[in-house]
């Protein structure tokens, strides 16, 4: 079929098109160059350098903490048993019955196992108030004023023996009360080393802002480990075991490449799909640099001998 003269591109247009394509390719190259530039910047010697905070980080570490508003802390949650969206738990978790509630303390490492009522636990141990930074593995953060018991108090009461090398936390898994209870194919499990569990920063929280925990925040009792990513903070705990073997935590079982056991916050080790160098502070504009151990390096740094071992930082 002969080509109609009207279909032939005039030379002028043709040339302009080339310029257009060249311009398009040029624009495309900009982010590629950025990426290349970013990769170049990660020289091995720089990566191996022990924690060298930029001035902004130092500034941030010494800044007073401004607690995130109560409505935000109770309205923006990850609690997959109640749905995958951030606003699902606040809507769906009201069906969770948190009273009566008992926590089983056991495992081969506990000489004094037993079942304890939540009110008993609250009554027997001192409730402390701690304002901690909270850093989610999804690269957002809050500041939360917790009320809670030192986990070490509970562990000491269970009289740990030499087999107590790790602590295993199991959370409630009840399809009657949780619409998405089966998302992980079983109860949510988390774990700590015994040393981490005994660290004075580690809490079993029972409240926020001097209010009893709301269901979406993990009522009636949840773990708080401020130097680790938020998924370590097991919610609505029903069992605490002192064990010899390293527990297989839920997120590690879900995706072994992306989530580990230690999950200590470190801006230099990225999640495979996103950077952990910065975080979005919920309720604020702009992003902030993320701090090593979420700003608690002085308190917890001694537990991890190797700052370059990814094992500790995902």
């Amino acid at each position: 079929m002969p080509v109609k003269s009207s279909e032939i591109t005039p030379e002028k247009v043709f040339k302009r098109r080339r310029t257009l394509i060249a311009a398009g390719l040029g624009v495309l190259a900009v982010p590629l160059l950025d990426r290349g530039y970013g990769l170049l910047q990660q020289k091995p010697d720089e990566v191996n350098e022990p924690f060298a905070p930029v001035s902004a980080q130092l500034g941030r570490q010494s800044q007073p903490l401004t607690p995130t508003p109560y409505e935000t802390v109770t309205g923006y949650n990850n609690y997959y048993e109640f749905g995958y969206s951030k606003d699902d738990p606040a809507k769906a978790a009201k069906t969770l019955m948190t009273s009566p509630w008992s926590v089983e303390i056991g495992g081969e490492g506990a000489n004094k196992p037993g079942f304890y009522d939540i009110e008993e636990i609250k009554g027997e141990h001192a409730i402390e108030n701690h304002v901690y930074r909270f850093r989610c593995v999804e690269a957002w953060s809050m500041v939360i004023p917790w009320n809670g018991i030192k986990l070490s108090d509970i562990i000491n009461a269970a009289q740990p023996n030499s087999k107590a090398k790790f602590v295993r936390f199991t959370t409630l898994n009840d399809a009657q009360q949780m619409p998405n209870a089966d998302w992980a194919g079983g109860p949510y499990v988390e774990g700590l080393t015994i040393e981490e569990a005994m660290n004075p920063l580690t809490l079993l929280a029972t409240g926020i802002y001097d209010q009893p925990l709301e269901q979406q925040n993990g009522a009636p009792i949840r773990l708080v480990v401020p130097w680790k990513y938020g998924f370590k903070y097991a919610k609505s705990i029903v069992k605490i075991e002192l064990v010899e073997q390293m527990p297989q935590n839920t997120w590690w079982l879900q995706n072994k490449r992306e989530y580990g056991f230690y999950a200590n916050v470190n801006p230099r080790f990225d999640h495979p799909r996103w950077t952990q160098a910065t975080e979005r502070v919920i309720g604020e504009l702009g992003r902030k640099p993320t701090l090593l151990y979420n700003g608690y390096a002085d308190e917890v740094g001694h537990m991890y001998p190797d700052l370059d071992n990814r094992l500790y930082f995902y």
Binding site: D34, R35, T275, A277
Partner: peptide, 9 residues
Amino acid sequence: LDEIAGNLF
């Protein structure tokens, strides 16, 4: 720019 460099998505 840093974020673009570190995040393929």
